[in-house]
Nucleic acid binder design. Structure first.
Lengths: 327, 327
DNA sequence: CGGTGCGTATAACCCATCGTTATGCACTCG
DNA sequence: CGAGTGCATAACGATGGGTTATACGCACCG
């Protein structure tokens, strides 16, 4: 019926109809710069790309690109569509992620995600402990910085996130697990045995060589502001993205750094740690979708992280207390 | 190459791949409630719809719907995708609109859009006057209420909008054309010759039978609030959506109404109009995309609307002035 | 100024997809 | 329990999107 109708006026192809493929093509050309490369981005041959573009322009009723001196340039019409196209493309990619994560959700009772820092500190300990009780259940762990973590959880790439940053989103619950003091780390043998277990005043960092953490989160900014107002300000010549990297550099003797207590305490014997005074608290959070309850594995994981984190913090505090009781 | 690869493991169809068609199917089923009806929404046969749905669910890796007692119900997974699907669907429809409007943009130097009210009042007069100077140029006029008008202009369904409501949007310019007083309209012979050209106090409307305008815009709300605080409040039993409809009803003798001056003055001899005191000003705006300059036809149109509107308002005012000078 | 080569268009062909009609089947409901 | 609605299956055809092979335009360069 429809096909016969189409047969009668054969050349009257559906006009002005947008296809997903066209959007992909559009994006690919913009990204690749050449049709041939765009084709390989889409995993198709170059003639296919040519046909696709031609067809798109024929169907839409106007050209999207013009070719000048071997370059593809957007026509004004193309430029008009660009914004909308990009948005749809993005949303579609999100949808794709969501779909594929739903499909494999049941295979993994726990897909954990943490910031890189914590992935090196407490999370593995926690997973190791869980593993003993779980046998061969499949578990995933990935790392993302906080903003991406949020998206991953919403798109169901992960179920539970562990982070130092409080995340706020309507569909997300952010559970506070524990808190601990900001600590200063240094290569071993920097301080004497007795000094090493005492708090250190943040003011005494004036004029010392610190590693800076280039974090955009609230704690990072707060710290930076604080350090800058010291007199003289602490000299910061090396900037790193995460506490963990800072730790590694400190280990190799390049300076001191202010880090979260979890990174510090998991460092072991290679470096010394001192709580900074006045105490600035760092919080640890578990983040998950508010929509449904956690399953038993996920609950156990959160609980286990909480326990381990608390133990680690306790270790830091106890060290001090031991000292105080000696005094 | 790719096809040969596909041939080797034939049943391993691309998994987790979202197609536009699936989204349309999804939406259609939700809307229609039955596969057969969904099929006709998509202009395909029922078996095609069945296959499409099955294929979608097979490719995605999980069912989207379950059939219970002859009803299609979303699965939890389906519900998860619903939001995202709807958003993409919407955006795609917008893109479609944009595309088809771009394709036909050059055929129409002026595609005007106005609120229904003004489409009956000043806009036709203006177009008629323009027509004399333009010859056979094609012009389009459509009507939309203000929120839809904004969207139409952005999606290039229209070039210039005429409205009583000030619209604000980053990509839109809103040009003030003129202002005029709120007026009360009544069936002819309601007032005496001399009374009819005098302003009428809004307080004197207390206890009278008015037509209400159910407008969500700022003026509508303002008016309603004002009328309600009269003592006793004006009785409003009939609510209509536009000034224009109110006018028609007033003409048929069903009551009085407060309307914009343009509607009032274009009514002709069938009804009487009196300016309301204290004067509440109604503004007339032309709305167009900020991005590019108007072409000559569009400019002429805006100018012409402005001129005519000003003339009409002038007529209302002059009537009073004549009276005052007589006094 | 005429090779050289990259990138694009065209040609000929293939097959998976998506559509069709015809028909059988299940389940709801009177 | 029979009728009827709505879904699934079967068999089949046209189209579109993909392929390879090849010709063409054009910038670049010796």
């Amino acid at each position: 019926m429809q096909s016969t109708l189409r047969d009668t006026n054969a050349d009257l192809a559906p006009l002005g109809v947008m296809h997903l493929r066209y959007i992909e093509m559009f994006q690919a050309i913009l990204q690749a710069g050449t049709l041939t490369d765009a084709a390989s981005l889409l995993n198709i041959s170059q003639p296919a790309a040519t046909k696709l573009l031609k067809q798109a322009e024929r169907r839409l009723g106007f050209p999207l690109f013009v070719r000048l001196k071997g370059q593809w340039h957007l026509t004004p019409e193309g430029r008009l569509l660009q914004g909308q196209m990009e948005r749809i493309f993005e949303e579609l990619r999100d949808l794709q992620r969501l779909v594929s994560n739903i499909a494999r959700a049941d295979k993994y009772p726990l897909r954990a995600i943490s910031t890189p820092t914590l992935a090196n500190a407490i999370v593995p300990k926690s997973l190791a402990r869980l593993r003993q009780t779980l046998g061969q259940t499949s578990i995933e762990l990935s790392t993302q910085h906080s903003p991406e973590m949020l998206k991953s959880i919403i798109l169901r790439e992960a179920d539970v996130g562990i982070t130092l940053q409080e995340l706020s989103h309507p569909d997300i619950r952010c559970e506070h697990l524990c808190e601990g003091p900001l600590v200063l780390i240094a290569p071993k043998d920097t301080w004497s045995r007795t000094a090493a277990v005492q708090p250190i005043s943040i003011d005494s960092l004036a004029n010392s060589t610190l590693l800076g953490i280039t974090r955009a989160d609230q704690l990072g900014r707060q710290l930076q502001a604080y350090l800058e107002q010291l007199d003289p300000p602490a000299r910061i010549s090396t900037w790193v993205q995460t506490y963990q990297i800072a730790k590694d550099i400190v280990c190799s003797g390049e300076g001191l750094a202010l880090v979260d207590p979890f990174t510090a305490v998991s460092a072991g014997a290679e470096l010394q740690t001192r709580v900074v005074e006045p105490i600035m608290n760092i919080n640890l959070y578990a983040v998950y979708r508010a929509e449904g309850p956690l399953n038993s594995v996920q609950k156990a994981f959160v609980q286990s992280v909480k326990t381990i984190a608390t133990e680690l913090i306790g270790f830091l505090r106890n060290r001090e207390r031991r000292l105080h009781s000696v005094q």
